[in-house]
Design a protein around this nucleic acid. Structure first.
Lengths: 257, 257
DNA sequence: CTGAGTGTTCCATCTGACGGAACGGATAGT
DNA sequence: ACTATCCGTTCCGTCAGATGGAACACTCAG
């Protein structure tokens, strides 16, 4: 029988991925630890890890296994796959320099937001989630900017898939509240996030639209509340919208070559 | 029988990885294309892709499948796993600013060099291989710097595994030539690469040693021949060695906390 | 309207993934 | 120094389940 784990999936693959998951969750692990985590026999874990190591997806340090840098290679490929992304990259740097805040570029994948680029102003402490991290679109400024450009049916799909989980007390958790917010964003041209993702962090976001109508991703400028006060209403949105627009023009131009 | 594809590996996993490989090699592919590339039946490819997509390792765009950004997430994790790497990151930026050239930080994994960070001086065109890319250690300045710090037995192992393939006419391809070069590097403190990896590109490299004796990785400064002339003998190596040393101190200091 | 491409689903076969037990190697406790 | 107890590793018989092929659905072009 075709193994009823999810309907037409390869069970060996699932244990493989569960092992990789385990390596991250346990921050490196031995075979015995993984055996517990995944719920299979020692020999099975060993066999999968051997396969992964042989293909350089996993590194063995003593008896501890770790996620290997092969993933970085593939991840870099995935990030740069779309030419548009590479065009936006330097713009994130410009944005950071001009605003003096933390700036990010996010795209949608599997109905989630994924950080592609992040840049800090010169002296800012470089902290926070790393590139590749996923977040719910409705919880961030850039994510809401992306949502505002999608057809309502698509937004519904996304909400159906992941719901509207709250992260802080200020996160939007109701469908109609979200719809109203997206309407506001479309009118105003940019999105705003006050403590909706992280308490004490405010952000402004703007969509980057592609030449063919679809939305490429979202740019955002974020900073601690006290640093954003004042600049929040005029200065930052102004710069942000200008750079977002430059991105669109650059992409449209490069497409024409 | 335990499937004799390589001795104690999971065959399903191997086809899974072959499919991922195919997605990169073909720069996105349909099921039929992958079937050819991997050499299995259509339904098998479909089943594996379904599994991968469900776990967000793969994205489906119409009928074409692509490598997903999940890899970027794991790759970022793998890169930042060692605290030392994060300490070196900003130093690469400093190095780029001070030298006005392209700067890289490379570590060794599976006996190959992997780019972890790369930074350009402000106005330089941002081009070249992306982060995560692998290269043979003997072909680059940073790679040779790493090799120079490894015990000879380890160097032999590495050469046994990958050989000494030539990339340009100037690449070192003989074992004893390499040994002599590494000796020179140890004496001088830094390594030099003139057209050994890419024709027209010169580079200087230095090892970054960890507090416990092992080598963490290699820093390098690279630029087109005409921009490196003159600065090559004194100025660049001076800055490079100073920054490499600062890295070691920072790592040693942070370890003590 | 039809034919040649797709992706997708289903099913019987027999491969090969699996767990358990036995082995080897290292480390700690006495 | 000896032994007990952890590891990882190897081996092997069994049956779950991965596989390929055929049938189905769908789209596009002629």
């Amino acid at each position: 029988m075709a193994g009823n784990n999810g309907g037409g999936a390869v069970k060996s693959d699932e244990t493989l991925l569960a092992i990789v998951d385990g390596l991250v969750a346990l921050d490196g692990a031995t075979i015995t630890e993984l055996k517990e985590h995944v719920g299979v026999s020692k020999s099975t874990v060993h066999r999968h890890l051997t396969t992964l190591e042989r293909h350089q997806y996993v590194v063995k340090e003593g008896d501890t296994y770790h996620v290997g840098l092969r993933f970085l290679d593939l991840g870099g490929y995935a990030r740069d796959r779309k030419a548009a992304h590479k065009i936006v990259e330097p713009k994130v740097g410009e944005l950071a320099e001009e605003t003096g805040q933390i700036c990010q570029f996010i795209v949608e994948e599997h109905s989630l937001g994924v950080f592609l680029y992040r840049e800090w102003a010169g002296d800012t402490v470089r902290t926070g989630a790393r590139v590749g991290t996923r977040s719910h679109l409705h919880q961030t400024a850039a994510g809401k900017a992306i949502l505002s450009q999608l057809p309502p049916a698509r937004v519904d799909e996304i909400v159906d898939r992941w719901g509207l989980p709250g992260e802080t007390e200020h996160t939007i958790t109701e469908r109609d509240e979200l719809a109203a917010e997206l309407e506001t964003i479309r009118d105003r041209g940019y999105s705003v996030d006050k403590d909706e993702h992280t308490e004490g962090l405010w952000a402004v976001g703007a969509p980057v639209n592609g030449p063919d109508g679809g939305v490429l991703g979202g740019l955002s400028v974020a900073g601690p509340t006290h640093r954003m006060k004042g600049k929040f209403e005029e200065e930052i949105p102004g710069i942000l919208l200008r750079i977002a627009n430059e991105c669109q023009l650059d992409v449209a131009y490069s497409r024409r070559l």
